[in-house]
Design a protein around this nucleic acid. Structure first.
Length: 417
RNA sequence: GGGUAGGUGCCCGAGGGGUUAAAGGGGGCGGUCUGUAAAAUCGCUGCGUAAGCUACGUUGGUUCAAAUCCAACCCUACCCA
């Protein structure tokens, strides 16, 4: 392109760049460009500023967020400056990325509460003491109208509307609120303020992150503007749809209990195992290929790989002891189909022949009487391992007897008469 | 301000006066099976013991009978001014 003579790039930076990019997409330019950046940073002894913004729209971070957080950590491990932006101002708009509808706005209090939990959870992955952690309300909330207009004047409406999700919504006659159009500007302005060299994000952040590049130039940055490293979005436990705060059922949250997290990881489709390992940066590409082959040849049971994966991640986000407990719980509960040890108990001493259906409702084992009956008719209710068939069953047991009630696969209750 | 097309159950989406608690799909839940809370497969999926009661944007109306017809209103998109 230009007349600059080719720069000799040391192997170490090429290797670093390769490793940092693994699984992701680097814009613009690819691995070489990053290697150059890494080298010149080393030459000038100025660590790269690596930005990651997270909007605290929900209280929990999930495994999908850890994909980029782990990347951020990887940069930290190479001595670069991590900048974690808690998007408390942007959260109030809500990122329109990939959305087909406007988000309900959050209150300031909700956002601030979520922001705190984000920090606690991010600390499990990145080194927060070395990271620079800022909230974008610091510069966005107090912005004067004239400064805001100055920002808005940097881009054209057509540029913003060309963005795929807006374009689709326009074509499909779905509403776009005006404030949503400002989202990319706000996020891009963050890059100007923190003077980022690299911005990390999910692949749905392409537009927003590239906006940061443009704005940095518009605001007079003389050094090269930020590069953008986009990571694919991790699919949730269903293996199809991305893990997203909008679909809580599909998320593995960092705040999930060890047992829950272990179980959810076991429920991912087999085909997702290598995908998770790749995006969470757990295995090298060679190892992934080998593992894939072993699975196909039937040498290795996907279940065992999943158990390994689950145990590893639970150890990391909780601790090894809890991971072991989670694994044992999974084995007894699901593999052996045995009754778990510590199940809730209910004292029924003195209660006159309680009805099973009523009991299920009272103990929230079923949402309605009809549903309780359906469960019984479908063979989903057991007493001491025996399927119950009588919808009208009354529990007449002698005092002192203890019986385990099981509803569906996961709900247990010990009844003491 | 005027016009047009829409608003259906958790979601998508059929239905255009009674046989519609509302087709079909997705999701969810349960059973079977299994090497797993994978896959596959079958079933269930408004509330109520029941009579019945709620439910198709809202409110009224027409009818023996309305998600379906009428009116007004609210919301959304598009077109025109």
């Amino acid at each position: 392109m230009n007349a600059v003579p080719p720069i000799e790039i040391a192997d170490i930076f090429l290797e670093q760049a390769h490793s940092l990019c693994r699984g992701g997409e680097l814009l613009p330019g690819g691995v070489m460009e990053l290697a150059k950046k890494l080298q010149s940073a080393a030459d000038s002894s100025t660590p790269l500023k690596v930005k990651l913004g997270l909007d605290p729209t929900r209280p929990d971070l999930h495994l999908g967020h850890t994909v980029v957080l782990r990347k951020l950590r990887a940069f930290q491990d190479l001595g670069h400056q991590a900048i974690l932006i808690i998007g408390d101002a942007t959260a109030m708009i809500g990122d329109p990325s990939g959305r087909s509808a406007t988000r309900p706005p959050l209150t300031d209090a909700e956002v601030q509460l979520n922001a705190q939990t984000y920090l606690d959870q991010a600390g499990k992955i990145i080194d927060v003491r070395k990271a620079q952690i800022v909230r974008n309300s610091e510069w966005l909330s107090g912005m004067k109208l004239e400064d805001f207009l100055k920002l808005a004047a940097k881009v054209t409406a057509a540029q913003i509307l060309a963005r795929e999700d807006f374009d689709t919504r326009l074509k499909e006659n779905r509403p776009i609120s005006l404030h949503e159009l400002f989202y990319p500007l706000m996020q891009g302005y963050d890059s100007v303020v923190v003077d980022a060299d690299i911005e990390l994000g999910g692949s749905d952040q392409r537009f927003n992150n590239l906006m940061g590049r443009e704005l940095q130039v518009s605001y007079g940055r003389t050094r090269p503007p930020q590069m953008v490293l986009l990571m694919p979005l991790l699919e949730g436990t269903d293996g199809k749809v991305k893990m997203s705060k909008s679909y809580p059922e599909n998320c593995i949250n960092l705040t999930d209990s060890a047992e829950e997290m272990y179980g959810k990881l076991m429920s991912i489709p087999d085909a997702m195992i290598t995908r998770y390992e790749l995006l969470l940066n757990l295995l090298s590409p060679e190892q992934l290929v080998e593992q894939e082959q072993q699975m196909q040849q039937g040498v290795v049971n996907p279940r065992d790989l999943k158990m390994h994966l689950a145990k590893f991640l639970v150890s990391q986000y909780h601790n090894p002891e809890d991971a072991e407990r989670g694994e044992q719980a999974f084995i007894t509960k699901f593999q052996k189909r045995e009754i778990p040890e510590d199940i809730p108990e209910l004292n029924l001493a003195g209660v006159e022949s309680p009805g099973l259906v009523n009991l299920m409702i009272e103990q929230q084992l079923a949402p309605s009487r009809n549903e309780a009956r359906r469960l019984i008719q479908g063979g989903g209710v057991k007493l001491d391992g025996q399927k119950v068939s009588d919808v009208e069953l009354l529990l007449n047991y002698t005092a002192g007897i203890s019986v385990v009630l099981q509803v569906g696969k996961r709900k247990f209750l010990r009844l003491n008469f």
